[in-house]
Design a protein around this nucleic acid. Sequence first.
DNA 1: TATTATTTTGAGACAGTTTATCAATTTCAA
DNA 2: TTGAAATTGATAAACTGTCTCAAAATAATA
Lengths: 144, 144
Amino acid sequence: MATKHAKEMATLKEHLGKHQLKLTRQREMILDAFLRQEHITAEAMYHQLAKADPHLGLATIYRTLNLFCDAGLAQARHFGSQTKYDNVSHKGHHDHLICTGCEKIVEFENEEIERLQEEVAARNGFTINTHRLELYGLCSRCRH
Amino acid sequence: MATKHAKEMATLKEHLGKHQLKLTRQREMILDAFLRQEHITAEAMYHQLAKADPHLGLATIYRTLNLFCDAGLAQARHFGSQTKYDNVSHKGHHDHLICTGCEKIVEFENEEIERLQEEVAARNGFTINTHRLELYGLCSRCRH
DNA sequence: TATTATTTTGAGACAGTTTATCAATTTCAA
DNA sequence: TTGAAATTGATAAACTGTCTCAAAATAATA
């Protein structure tokens, strides 16, 4: 399993090294589970990993997912009362259309928007690493 | 003050009438304060109105802001761990370029991006009310 | 204006999510 | 292998937002 997500593991190790943090069994386990998902909540991961390690604490999951965010492997998204952690490496970057009526989420990609983002960034002297684009509104069903 | 936001007050009254709800001193006060802002949290409004009415309850603020959402005057957005209530009648939306090195934030607007967002939304049957676009990267100074 | 049914309020209890605490354990550089 | 430093697990605590309910306010009716 360590070989499966070698690239992300390398990213994590680099981050750990830079910040005097340590690689633990739990961090490996959580990274492995995390990378299998497109996005997941801490609570969901807690239950999912309970079988593999019944003593893995919820606090550790939260700490580790936040660590992944710092390392650039995950991105936190607050929706409703919960936080979803998106797997940044899983796909080409996707943006979200979010229905505020039924909380449905539609993912999309738009090259033209991405290109314009680069343009705006360049004009301001920035180099983009990641971005977040969320459109809030009503889906066709909720509009009525 | 009732005359200042006459249009929104009319919208609210119409909603109240339709749903057998009543116009109260608190609802008027909160609407007036709300319309002065571009967006605000319930907690912030609670403190802001404490001077005018020390006994105005936090629950009432939440109930009323949610009422404004139902009436179409406000829109709730989950941001960080808090909920921000956007003033729908306010336009002039800003997007953000955020430097992960020095935390500098540059605001920008791009009509072309906005137009493409509408296009994506329409293609998926959505009507956009608000959006959030954040570009994360390094500014020219931090890149070196 | 007085009456009355209905809605709203305020205060705090409560519930769900996330973070802080801290003793015991684990990591990793020397 | 040792030992300083970081991490974990369990749970307490904090935080945001909703619910409860008696008392007060509203608005329709007379």
